[in-house]
Simulated scan of single mutants.
Amino acid sequence: MKYFAVLLPMKDADKSREFRPQHLAYLEDKRNNGQVAANGKFADGSGGLVIYRAESFGACEALVKKDPYIAEGARKYEIFEWEAVWADNAQ
Score class of each variant (00 low, 15 high):
A25H: 09
A25M: 06
G73S: 14
G40E: 05
L27R: 01
E18P: 03
F80Y: 09
L27D: 03
G34L: 09
E72G: 09
Q22N: 12
V6W: 05
K65T: 12
S16R: 15
R31A: 13
F57I: 06
D67L: 05
L63K: 01
S46I: 10
F57Y: 06
A74N: 11
D44F: 01
S46V: 07
P9Q: 05
P21N: 01
K11S: 05
A59W: 04
I70Q: 00
R17D: 09
A43V: 11
W86F: 15
K76W: 13
F57Q: 02
E78C: 06
P68A: 12
Y77I: 00
W82A: 01
G47Q: 03
V36Y: 06
A38Y: 12
W86H: 15
D29G: 13
Q35Y: 09
L24N: 04
V36C: 11
F57A: 03
D29V: 10
A54H: 00
W82L: 02
G48Q: 07
F42T: 08
K15T: 02
G40N: 11
D44Q: 00
E55S: 10
K30S: 01
A5G: 11
W86A: 15
Y52A: 05
V6N: 05
G34W: 00
Y52M: 02
R75A: 15
R17S: 11
L8P: 07
A5M: 14
V85T: 14
D29W: 11
V64R: 05
K66Q: 15
Y52Q: 05
M1E: 09
Y3C: 08
K2E: 13
S56P: 06
F80L: 11
A38M: 14
D12I: 01
M10H: 11
W82S: 07
G48K: 11
R17T: 13
F19Y: 15
A5H: 04
Y52G: 01
A13M: 04
W86Y: 13
A37F: 14
N32V: 08
G58M: 08
Q91L: 14
E72R: 13
A84F: 03
G45Q: 03
G40I: 11
A38T: 10
V64Y: 02
A13I: 02
R20I: 07
I51A: 00
L27M: 10
I70L: 07
Q35K: 13
A90Y: 07
L27A: 04
A87D: 13
A59P: 02
A37S: 15
C60E: 02
A74H: 08
V6R: 01
F4D: 02
L24I: 10
N32L: 14
A37H: 09
L49S: 05
L24W: 03
D12A: 04
A62H: 03
A54M: 03
I79V: 04
W82V: 00
C60Q: 00
Y77F: 03
K66P: 05
A54C: 00
L63N: 01
A90W: 11
A71Q: 14
E78D: 12
A74L: 05
I79L: 01
V85E: 12
D29Y: 10
S16P: 03
K41W: 13
Y26F: 15
A62E: 13
K15G: 00
S16V: 12
V85R: 14
R20C: 08
A37P: 09
N39H: 14
